[in-house]
Amino acid sequence: MSLSQDLFTVIRTGDSVQLTTLLAEQPALVNVRSPQGISAVLWAHYTGQTDLLPTLLAANPQLDIHDMAAMGDLSRLRALLADNPSLARAYSRDGFTALHYVAFFNGSTDLASSLLEAGAEVDAVARNEQQVTPLHSAAAHRHNAVIQLLLAHGANVNARQENGETPLMEAAQNGDTALVGDLLARGADPMLATDDGRTAANFAATAGHADLAATLRGKMA
């Protein structure tokens, strides 16, 4: 196994002692990327090992706008955008924009607003098999303040991701009655179904939200 593979394995397993040792022996490792093009900082977010971020940051990694978006680093993100606003629309090597990362990982309306003001596409579709928009990402983690911001900027409430899932289905699965109501009020279609035929009502019922499932079935009548 290469040292770069070791790095991503150590991050995934949350081994802070071994991570410190690796970076002390090979400081340049902090800037290597996975075969999918993911940075060590993003990998810590993807694997839920954000407790390792102080160790990674102490090694002075070269951060890009996607790292900053995931971490919620507003000042440095704004500085990058001031120099190059087109970064707001740039895709990471694994297919997401900075707005996707903000919507999914931290839910910061300040970061999301800065990106939108710089020209980020509110309905940017991930360039990978997930095909999510930022609204899907925010709905998945119940970042409702960002959801409201995206909706205010005209986000498509009926956007379809992989397998045809919509933000309404995400909200229904989470049992988020308030968000379901808001999405419906903004034109979300409860009749839409996934590729295998499931509606938002089915998502709610499967997740044990019987009352919400009944409400959604009523909207389909």
Rank of each mutant, 00 (worst) to 15 (best):
A139D: 07
F105Y: 15
P167W: 05
A126H: 03
N158A: 08
R78Q: 15
L81E: 11
P85V: 07
V102W: 11
L135Y: 05
N106E: 12
G95I: 11
V102P: 12
L111Y: 04
S137H: 01
Q161H: 05
A82K: 14
A159T: 01
D110N: 13
Q130I: 09
E129M: 11
R142N: 14
A145M: 10
F96K: 10
A139T: 14
G164V: 06
V122P: 01
V125I: 15
P85G: 08
L77W: 07
T133W: 06
E129H: 12
T109H: 06
A90L: 05
P167Y: 07
R142W: 05
A139I: 03
R78F: 00
A98G: 12
L149R: 07
S113P: 03
Y101E: 14
R160C: 04
N163R: 15
S137I: 00
A124F: 03
L81Q: 10
M169K: 08
G95Q: 12
Q131R: 15
A152C: 01
R78N: 15
T133C: 07
H136Y: 08
F105I: 04
N128G: 11
L77G: 10
A98T: 08
L151W: 01
A124N: 05
A112T: 06
Q130M: 12
N128A: 10
E121K: 04
R160Y: 04
L115Q: 07
E162G: 06
A90Y: 02
